[in-house]
């Protein structure tokens, strides 16, 4: 039971990170019907930028609490802005020229972009794994259980609290943006019908650019969270995390923001429990198998609308 609760907490934390990445997939797919394969690598870039800024600021565990807080906000803002620059540039250079081309063209381009980003970071930042000394430590003990083997403690760490609360706040903010602002309205209009939207005076290009920027910014947040949580990153983390987040987006119902979050949580929980109770080696197999199963049996997702084939 205690073990279960601990895994539940870990799973929700992991799921929050996946959910943040999944939002980028879901928004881009919703608006231009394209799987932005390179999105996972934007997440990776976000993590690296966070690492650079943290190192530049000299942030360590001994930094005072208030200062750490301010510094982390600075790191977050930097990572979001710079990742947005990546997202915007990629959309302009690699994806926009292909709009209106055959449907699989942007997917193939996105694979190319993903390869470019991975290898660029590998060259610029080195191929080796980057460790980061923990900055936020401690946590709260929720339960303790004494067994013959010793004490088993169920803990929620400060960093888990941070990740979950940041995710919840960002989710709320972005949901508000989509629901209430004119930007959100433009996005939803473009989702329905781009041609009509442009006839009604919506700047479709700008709306799509903004979507990429928003997705990239959230991926950067996820990158920072991942860095703080695991403490190690390398240039390859984007691939598997991207696949898992995409699975989350599909599972939640592609195009749906709450769906992405829900999907992220489910995938995070499945991965954590799989690793805890079955095997760690095959955890990626579980994720990939999950993707296949979801696409085959539940392509419209949990919160998505079923598609009617148009004849």
């Amino acid at each position: 039971m205690e073990y279960f609760v601990q895994q539940l907490i870990n799973g929700v934390t992991l799921g929050s990170i996946y959910g943040l990445i999944a939002i980028g997939y879901t928004m881009v797919y919703g608006i231009i019907g394209m799987i932005n394969f390179a999105h996972g690598d934007i997440f990776m870039v976000g993590a690296f930028i966070s690492l650079i800024v943290i190192t530049a600021l000299g942030l360590t565990v001994s930094t005072g609490l208030g200062l750490t807080f301010v510094a982390l906000i600075l790191v977050l803002v930097c990572a979001m802005i710079i990742a947005s620059a990546y997202g915007w540039t990629l959309e302009r250079l690699a994806y926009r020229p292909l709009r209106g081309s055959f449907r699989l063209a942007p997917l193939i381009t996105a694979i190319g972009v993903s390869i470019v980003l991975q290898n660029y970071i590998q060259i610029a930042q080195g191929a080796r794994v980057k460790p980061l000394q923990p900055i936020i430590t401690d946590g709260y003990t929720l339960m303790t259980k004494t067994t013959e083997a010793g004490e088993f403690v169920v803990q929620i760490s400060n960093i888990q609290i941070l990740i979950i609360s940041v995710t919840v706040i960002l989710m709320a903010v972005f949901s508000l943006i989509i629901a209430k602002t004119s930007l959100g309205r433009s996005q939803r209009a473009c989702e329905q019908d781009q041609k009509m939207a442009s006839l009604l005076g919506i700047n479709v290009d700008k709306t799509i650019s903004t979507t990429f920027v928003m997705g990239a910014a959230l991926a950067a947040v996820a990158g920072l969270m991942f860095l703080l949580y695991y403490g190690v990153i390398d240039f390859f983390i984007g691939f598997v995390a991207g696949v898992k987040a995409f699975t989350a987006a599909v599972l939640g119902g592609i195009g749906s923001l709450p769906g992405a979050m829900l999907g992220g949580l489910v995938i995070g929980l499945i991965e954590t429990f799989w690793s805890a109770y079955f095997s760690v080696e095959y955890k990626d197999v579980a994720a990939f198998a999950m993707l296949a199963i979801v696409l085959i049996f539940l392509p419209q997702g949990l919160l998505g609308k079923p598609e009617v084939e148009k004849v």
């Binding site: 650079i52 915007w88 970071i121 080195g126 980061l132």
Partner: peptide, 25 residues
């Protein structure tokens, strides 16, 4: 210029290196 500075100015200008007692730039 601004975009290039954001993209390359960060990842190329600062390279994280593993050192004793943490990372250095």
């Amino acid at each position: 210029f601004l975009l290039a500075a954001a993209i390359f100015g960060t990842t190329i200008a600062f390279k994280t290196e593993t050192a004793i007692g943490g990372l250095t730039l």
